[in-house]
Design a protein around this nucleic acid. Sequence first.
DNA 1: GTACAATGTGACCGTTCGGTCACACCATCT
DNA 2: AGATGGTGTGACCGAACGGTCACATTGTAC
Lengths: 228, 228
Amino acid sequence: MPTKTYLNLPEEKRQKIEKAAIAEFATNPLQSASINAIVSKAGIAKGSFYQYFESIDDLHDHILTIVRKKKLEVINSLPLDSANLDTFRYLRRVLQAAVEFQIRYPDLASIERFQRLSANHLSSVDPETGERMGGDGRFHAFLTQGILHDDIATWVDVDMAAFMLEIIEGGIAPYLVERIGDKAPEFTSGNLLSVDDQRTQDLFDNLMDILEAGLARTPQIRKDFYSK
Amino acid sequence: MPTKTYLNLPEEKRQKIEKAAIAEFATNPLQSASINAIVSKAGIAKGSFYQYFESIDDLHDHILTIVRKKKLEVINSLPLDSANLDTFRYLRRVLQAAVEFQIRYPDLASIERFQRLSANHLSSVDPETGERMGGDGRFHAFLTQGILHDDIATWVDVDMAAFMLEIIEGGIAPYLVERIGDKAPEFTSGNLLSVDDQRTQDLFDNLMDILEAGLARTPQIRKDFYSK
DNA sequence: GTACAATGTGACCGTTCGGTCACACCATCT
DNA sequence: AGATGGTGTGACCGAACGGTCACATTGTAC
């Protein structure tokens, strides 16, 4: 945790430090990140660094909280069609948020990817039941809910499917952004959200069709639609 | 590329060096791997290292060729049901090879994962057509073939699906191995291949069902089978 | 034996690393 | 003015880094 001294710093200075740290952690995994490089880029003395943070891990943790905060912001900034989305619309929303995050904050997305690799959270343990769950539990709960709502096929191995969705969420965003291609700069300028772009939506449709056909209890396969 | 001197080294010495390098690269990404640590673990002088390799990248490249070679060995060691597998049996074989590789050579699998992260080969370019392909092209060709054989639905975005399969292949092996759990040690001893274990096969069945339902032209959804 | 080339070696170099600390600075008090 | 306490600073430390090189050792040819 950052020290009180750091938290009392003027916003401007804090941002300069965080910007430098983000740039460093986005290009170097924590193991090979350099404190010297960060303080140099931030324009502060090394002694100051140690008055703000206990160690580089401390700073990295702090940056990770920023990553999570910004990601939440992106998720909440997506337009909500209705109060209670059905299972697959919700999944689409989650994946869309990953893409939006990749576009708006590529550095933060990069940090998230590094973190995913180093923290091999193959499975976590449900604090209540004590059962093992694929991934961090978000998709596990999501799929369980989906089964209760008769959206997800009962034969699906929820544990494994949850893990699969997690690695898809974590890995496919950079690819989709590259596919979207030329449009990306417009998104970053903030004038246009990927959610409004037709090409992006077509890609998402296809991705969701594959996932839905694979997971759904009564899949709405688009074969006919596409073959027309 | 290693020097002639290295290639002429007695097998025993080469293996000691490669073993040390593999241990280092499995725990540290290339950026933060240490030559000093490698030569120390291998029991050779630092001067010798530079007579064998130009740099640490040179050594890393050499280790990567070993990774690829061993992975090919694993793929070929899997029993082949028939000369020409149908599309989804082939896909199952590829994913099974990834698991088998993870079990037999966890260090090499770890090196492969580090490499995947640093080399952001989101897409590659087909040297013939000049078209972009999701992933490195293997799954792209696989899916294209599948469509020709009427196995894969024509509406599937081959590019994206190829990338999706690639990240599934790259990410799911450690999870499946953890799921298999207690059986893993027996596999490493070589007495038992994962391909023979029932629990492993059940997991694979479920994974393949999801993928097949999502991708196939005429999916053989197992709903009925599981709900019995 | 001698000559010569190939290979092995670790002390040594300059650089960078994480981390410390004596000191400078400065706002706020009596 | 003087004292106090929080904040900023960069020279400095030992350790580790990648890389070099003069020299030792070994192998081969004669």
